[in-house]
Lab assay of single mutants.
Amino acid sequence: NQASVVANQLIPINTALTLVMMRAEVVTPMGIPAVDIPRLVSMQVNRAVPLGTTLMPDMVKGYA
């Protein structure tokens, strides 16, 4: 099973992602693959992402 990107903290809307905000976890359903974490750094979320939420492609501006 491939790990997905999960929020390590509450990420407010329009926040630029940093490594500290994300962790890799095997979850269902799968979200953004953990291998993409370096690519996500400095991209912004388009909604508030609660702690423990799996990041989906439509939550990150410019990802999809």
Results as ranks from 00 to 15, higher is better:
23 R>F: 05
56 M>V: 10
19 L>P: 12
20 V>N: 12
43 M>Q: 05
33 P>M: 07
16 A>C: 08
53 T>L: 13
29 P>M: 13
9 Q>D: 15
45 V>G: 01
37 I>V: 11
12 P>W: 04
17 L>M: 10
39 R>C: 10
63 Y>K: 06
8 N>Q: 12
2 Q>R: 03
10 L>D: 14
56 M>K: 08
32 I>V: 12
34 A>K: 03
51 L>P: 09
23 R>T: 07
62 G>F: 05
42 S>L: 06
62 G>V: 04
26 V>L: 07
4 S>P: 01
10 L>C: 15
9 Q>A: 09
63 Y>Q: 07
16 A>H: 10
47 R>F: 10
61 K>G: 07
48 A>M: 08
64 A>I: 15
39 R>E: 04
63 Y>T: 05
48 A>V: 09
60 V>Q: 01
2 Q>I: 13
40 L>I: 11
38 P>G: 10
2 Q>A: 15
55 L>D: 00
7 A>F: 01
45 V>C: 06
52 G>Q: 05
45 V>D: 01
13 I>A: 11
1 N>K: 03
26 V>F: 05
16 A>T: 09
46 N>M: 06
57 P>D: 08
31 G>C: 03
18 T>N: 04
22 M>P: 00
47 R>T: 12
15 T>P: 01
31 G>Y: 02
36 D>G: 04
20 V>I: 15
23 R>N: 10
18 T>F: 14
18 T>P: 00
50 P>W: 13
62 G>I: 04
3 A>L: 08
5 V>G: 02
9 Q>V: 09
46 N>F: 08
9 Q>R: 06
35 V>H: 13
9 Q>C: 05
33 P>K: 07
59 M>L: 08
33 P>H: 15
30 M>H: 11
55 L>P: 00
53 T>I: 12
53 T>D: 15
54 T>D: 01
34 A>T: 06
1 N>H: 10
20 V>H: 10
38 P>A: 13
18 T>Y: 03
49 V>L: 12
59 M>P: 01
29 P>V: 13
5 V>Q: 01
38 P>V: 09
52 G>V: 02
62 G>T: 05
17 L>T: 00
52 G>T: 03
61 K>A: 11
40 L>F: 02
10 L>V: 13
27 V>C: 07
19 L>W: 05
62 G>Y: 09
30 M>Q: 12
47 R>I: 10
27 V>T: 12
33 P>Y: 10
45 V>L: 09
